[in-house]
Design a protein around this nucleic acid. Structure first.
Length: 755
DNA sequence: CTTCCTGGTGTT
DNA sequence: AACACCAGGAAG
């Protein structure tokens, strides 16, 4: 059984290491990977069965995630379709690969509504280009497909998580492509390269959703006197962010809002909280409404339902399988004194309070938002750092059982039901209804609760997941929607439509210099950096400290070097870091294309400007943002410029970097880096003015709002006594680009303090 | 890594 | 007003 391996990309059988002729190999009918029959433990019996032969990997899919495969009924059709593609002599290999991908990702992309504007069409064309590029550049070296849940080895090769795990599961601890050793840590805890995931997915899907807000009830809390970031009151200055107060709430959902936070609730950027959105900490997550409680894992009301949960490793009974997980209720612990958390359980959990709230959501079939925190160390699906929004799940059933610590715990089966794919997959489409996984512990469960009525949130063949019955009305309804807010939302939504390539390039940022990576390295902890940035951030790269004393060499001492983004020791990786070639190729192709498009756009805009420059001037005099033109200039400039500037910079730099790469190491690179930063700062300054005016106008709008109650209570006067919570690097705000306005680095309250 | 310990915020 | 809560620095 073990030991069955396919041929590698060069056609060399991974078992016998010979290179059989192509005709000698048989392709798997599903994944089309070639295999060397003499090396198979169970080769196909007859000639006839070769045509429909499935490789060991496809025939025995890894257990675990349910429903990942296409619907059973469609399968035979799928296989036939793939074979038809393979048999088509009129297609090049690339075209075939492309077709296979389309099939496997759930059918050809439907290009609906061709009546969209020119912009949209260009967008679509760009995407398919990018998808082509991806298909060319990125292949899991085992299955030869676009990597699914990609992981990157220290030697710079990319694999599907599953292929990788299958490979290492067979006791192979060397790279399937280059035979370099794979470190044990990566074998036991492979990390998904999320930058790659997002890139692949952005290329596949168009984020330009057509959802037109049909007058949602906008909830607005009076909190504009709060700073943008979490802060601490005079009294709370002692300890860390634990005692911070929340900054502004940016979204306009009521605190008891169920389901996704869509763009119409986001007057700031008009994006809403998209799946995969990550924040530094729980406070920031709270500010975007994904999960309001700062400490608690469950947001909800026992008589009403639970809106969201956090998976952050607080309860050892939790079990995370990505698309579904088993969640543990809260309570059962002694929290007397000022303990926030106490891992020790000393009594049984019951279905009351927040546990009951979850049960209500289960019974009603409400969507529950899920955030995962980096603190959940046991899950492969947890983010590397911060807190990430992973979409909505439904609680299919709940029960009680005796937990690991011997007391009863409440248990919930969460199953994903989001229209957007999860952050760890490069799927194009979101979830489809999937069969419930087998839960062995159910045998010993008590108080088993299942939903009787039809779920309020359910799947519709046409529209995907949606409210089948109306969502529960908010009990904290506050304001009548102000037309100004709606206008603001609309404007923000327009601006959020970045071009695919811009988004992609943003994903391929070096986490140190924040520019698009050149010579990208992927650490075993799945962080991406420019080679020079990473190497340059360590002054001495020798593996060990050679301690010499009196001419004698003492025992060498290993040096620990932490990844700049996480506490992992990457000193082994630094000994022989290999550039992720595939990623580099892709970045370079993207940059080339981006230049082309920029040129295109400039030409077009030049024409447009010329056409209607007369009309615009009168608009601008008004000062208020009336026309799209002025609007566009004001708000999109900072992001646009930032990106364009970044690119041109990187291009210059990468040229320089390439030439330099022959010569000596980090010195030059560092100076280049500094240049980059300098340039960026000056850029920020240059546009500071326009930014500020945008800000003021936005706030002026907010101030006109009516409110009944707010989050600011208890006579708190943050302006007078807050200190902002520490931020690591100032330019972090700048670098997140469009997400956070650059002006945000200086909050309004801070400004007033300065004055 | 573990332990200590602060005093936010929503719910009861 | 009391209570509960899957934080998060800092120190050991």
């Amino acid at each position: 059984m073990a030991g069955d391996l396919p041929c590698d990309p060069d056609g060399v059988c991974m078992v016998c290491k010979t290179k059989p002729l192509l005709e000698e190999c048989i392709p798997c009918s599903t994944c089309v990977t070639p295999w060397h029959p003499p090396c198979l433990s169970r080769p196909p019996e007859s000639l006839a069965s070769i045509a429909s032969w499935e490789c060991p990997d496809c025939a025995a899919p890894a257990s675990g995630t349910p429903g990942k495969a296409p619907a059973a009924g469609a399968e035979s059709g799928l296989v036939a379709a793939i074979r038809a593609i393979e048999a088509d002599a009129g297609m090049t290999e690339r075209q075939k690969a492309r077709k296979r991908q389309e099939l496997l990702s759930g059918g050809a992309p439907e290009l609906s509504g061709d009546d969209e504007g020119d912009d949209m069409k260009r967008g679509k064309r760009a995407e398919t280009d990018v998808l082509d590029l991806l298909g060319e550049k990125f292949k899991c070296s085992i299955c030869m497909q676009l990597p699914e849940r990609p992981v990157t080895t220290p030697c710079g090769h990319n694999f599907c998580l599953k292929c990788f795990q299958r490979w290492t599961g067979q006791g192979k601890y060397t790279c399937a492509k280059c035979r370099s050793r794979i470190p044990q840590a990566m074998v036991s805890h492979p990390r998904i390269n999320s930058a790659l995931v997002i890139a692949i997915r952005t290329a596949k899907t168009s984020k330009m959703s057509a959802s037109d807000p049909q007058a949602p009830v906008l909830h607005y809390v009076r909190n504009e006197d709060k700073p943008d970031e979490a802060y601490r009151t005079e009294r709370a200055k002692k300890a860390g962010k634990a005692n911070a107060c929340s900054g502004q709430i940016f979204v306009t959902i009521p605190p008891d809002h169920f389901g996704p936070i869509t763009r119409e609730y986001d007057p700031k950027y008009g994006e809403g909280v998209y799946v995969g959105r990550t924040w530094d900490d729980r406070m920031e997550c709270r500010q975007w409404g994904a999960h309001f409680p700062h400490v608690a894992g469950i947001a909800g009301q026992s008589d009403y339902g639970a809106q969201s949960v956090a998976l952050s490793g607080g309860y050892e009974d939790d079990e995370d399988h990505g698309e579904w997980f088993l969640y543990t209720g809260s309570g059962g612990r002694d929290l007397s004194g000022n303990k926030r958390t106490n891992k020790e359980q000393s009594f049984d959990q019951k279905f009351e309070k927040l546990n009951q709230a979850l049960r209500v959501s289960c019974l009603k079939g409400y969507p529950v938002r899920v955030v995962r925190s980096h603190k959940e160390k046991r899950s492969s699906y947890a983010p590397e750092k911060g807190v990430r929004y992973d979409g909505v799940y439904r609680i299919e059933m709940c029960w009680r059982k005796v937990g690991i610590q011997g007391y009863k715990v409440c248990r919930y089966l969460f199953v994903r039901c989001d229209n957007d794919p999860a952050p760890w997959t490069s799927d194009t489409y979101g979830d489809r209804p999937r069969p419930l996984p087998k839960i062995p512990e159910l045998k010993k469960a008590t108080d088993v609760t299942k939903r009787e009525e039809s779920p309020a949130w359910d799947y519709d063949e046409q529209d995907g997941w949606k409210w089948i019955r109306p969502p529960p009305p908010s009990r904290k309804m506050l304001v009548s929607p102000d037309p100004a807010v709606r206008k603001q939302v609309k404007r923000a939504m327009k601006h959020s439509q970045n071009s695919v390539r811009e988004m992609l390039l943003k994903e391929f940022c070096c986490l140190i210099c924040k520019n698009v990576m050149k010579l990208p390295l992927t650490t075993p902890c799945a962080h991406n950096f420019c080679k020079f940035c990473l190497l340059g951030s360590f002054d001495d790269l020798s593996a060990v400290k050679e301690r010499t004393r009196g001419g004698r060499t003492l025992r060498a001492q290993k040096i620990v070097r932490k990844c700049p983004c996480c506490p992992n020791d990457i000193s082994d990786f630094l000994q022989n870091p290999q550039v992720n070639r595939e990623m580099m190729d892709l970045i370079e192709s993207l940059q080339r294309k981006d230049e082309e498009e920029c040129a295109d756009r400039l030409r077009e805009e030049g024409n447009e400007e010329a056409e209607k420059s007369g009309a615009e001037e009168s608009d601008n005099n008004d000062g208020k943002l009336s026309g799209e033109g002025s609007d566009h200039v004001e708000k999109s400039n900072p992001t646009d410029e930032g990106i364009i500037d970044m690119d041109s910079l990187t291009n210059k730099e990468s040229n320089a970097g390439m030439k330099m790469s022959n010569g000596e190491d980090g010195m030059e690179d560092k100076s280049a880096d500094q240049n980059g930063n300098l340039a960026e700062n000056s850029n920020a300054n240059t546009f500071g003015d326009s930014n500020e005016s945008t800000f003021e106008s936005v706030e002026a709008v907010s101030d006109t709002l009516v409110y009944k109650e707010g989050f600011v209570g208890k006579n708190r006067t943050p302006e007078k006594d807050f200190t902002p919570c520490k931020r690591k690097i100032d330019d972090e705000t700048v670098l997140t680009g469009g997400k956070k306005a650059k002006a945000a680095s200086l909050t309004r309250s801070q400004k007033s303090l300065v004055e």
